[in-house]
Write a protein that binds this DNA or RNA. Structure first.
Length: 407
DNA sequence: TCTGGGGTCCTAGGACCC
DNA sequence: TCTGGGGTCCTAGGACCC
């Protein structure tokens, strides 16, 4: 098979860079996006200035604040980032239809089919990089290789702002000294296990027999073995249908009052219902998640014969699942969440649900008003109750992190 | 240090059926 | 009265990614 030409392109410190663009006074400063220093949470992005202090994404905000007390902490605005991401996608798609958006700020391009169009790959790649940077006003890093794994690892080496190509014959020398956790799929747990076996670099994996990898990583073992040699024939995948939608909240302080937790659960169900409606989806599985104050996480899910979309239906099930978990609770909760999965596009109306048509019409009307005027523009009776609970919440000093219902 | 929110995928055990 | 083998479905948990 002919060597493919895969390009991986990644926006540098994406959220932080967008914030600098929106507010030029932030230029040159240590920016940490993810939340305010006293909040519970982690950094989703740190600017390169902040990284000098040791701050990195995934780090708890309180720790980031200790390391970088003069940093500028921002909650961030996902809608703005999503709009930048759409532009990113638009620009790249002009070069080839063979593209995979791996996340908001990261994409793969396969130029193999466009050989006739682009006689010089390195020139084309340089041009793509320049165009993206000019149009988005954001710096990007680019990696080029014969497959996804090598292109991605090349990008990591190119950061920030550079371009690295893994040339034919250089694959193993490029890989051998990289730490094993550079391979996607090897996270903190796997790294710790491999560390005990004295396996720290990718070249250390080369000596392991297949069976050992199979034992360590299960089905992923063979893929990891091949990738450690730079072999990867995974095709690019255009983003398929979403498999699940979820909404969850970590409270600023742990909560033990049932009434408060149920009220917040209802709020999450409402937001989930809105999201399902937006995607024109119905859900066959509803799942409730709780995280206790000791950080132990539990879930309960229910498979439904008739898929749901309406808030009332979701909440009825979520409430039961929640109470199953919360019955006899000895600890308070730091998180509740609700998730819809096994999504379907439409559903057949059941003869046993005479009111469902009416309910759906009401739901559509609520949805339209909220799309136009915002979530808080229209409150149902239950949400009016919720609103009271929110003020009750404030009186009790439990400020929920999620924005209140009214604007 | 004290651990987000949104996802995907895999594993393992129990129930159930043949 | 002791106890198969295999397949599938469901549930819960967890690793991992950005």
């Amino acid at each position: 098979m002919r060597r493919r030409c895969i390009v991986h392109i990644d926006i540098d410190a994406f959220f932080a860079s967008v914030e600098k663009l929106l507010d030029p006074s932030l230029e040159g400063k240590a920016i940490i996006v993810g939340g305010l220093p006293h909040e519970r949470g982690v950094a989703s992005t740190a600017s390169y200035e902040a990284r000098k202090y040791g701050v990195h994404s995934g780090m708890p905000l309180q720790k980031a604040y200790q390391l970088c007390p003069n940093g500028i902490f921002l909650r961030g605005n996902h809608r703005v980032y999503a709009s930048f991401s759409r532009n990113f996608h638009r620009i790249l798609s002009r070069y080839t239809p063979d593209m995979e958006m791996a996340s908001l700020d990261e994409a793969y391009l396969d130029l193999s089919r466009c050989r006739a169009l682009y006689p010089s790959f390195s020139q084309t790649v340089t041009q793509i990089k320049q165009t993206v940077e000019e149009k988005l006003k954001l710096s990007v890093s680019v990696g080029v290789g014969p497959n996804k794994i090598l292109a991605k690892l090349a990008t990591n080496r190119a950061k920030p702002g550079g371009m690295v190509e893994v040339k034919p014959g250089c694959e193993e020398s490029f890989l051998k000294e990289l730490p094993i956790e550079a391979l996607p799929g090897i996270g903190s747990k796997a790294r710790a296990e491999l560390d005990m076996l004295n396996i720290r670099k990718i070249k250390d994996l080369w000596g392991l027999p297949r069976e050992a990898l199979r034992t360590l990583f299960g089905l992923r073992g063979e893929e990891i073995r091949l990738q450690s040699h730079g072999i990867d024939d995974r095709p690019l995948e255009s983003s398929g249908e979403q498999k699940s939608i979820s909404r969850e909240t970590t409270f600023l302080k742990d909560i033990w009052e049932r009434r408060l937790l149920l009220a917040h659960l209802a709020y999450l169900c409402d937001r989930l219902s809105l999201a399902l409606r937006k995607e024109r989806c119905f859900s066959h599985i509803i799942e409730v998640k709780v995280r206790w104050s000791d950080f132990k996480t539990e879930v309960r899910r229910r498979l439904l014969v008739n898929p749901v979309q309406e808030m009332d239906d979701i909440y009825r099930i979520a409430r039961e699942l929640f109470l199953e978990l919360f019955q006899g609770a000895r600890l308070s909760l730091r998180l509740v969440g609700v998730k819809a999965s096994d999504l379907v596009r439409s559903r057949t109306l059941s003869l046993f649900e005479p009111h469902s048509l009416h309910k759906e019409r009401l739901g559509s009307a609520v949805f339209e008003v909220r799309e136009k005027y915002g979530f808080g523009a229209l409150l149902t009776a239950r949400e009016k109750m919720l609103e009271d609970v929110y003020s009750f919440t404030k009186e009790r000093g439990f400020i929920l992190k999620t924005a209140s219902l009214t604007k």
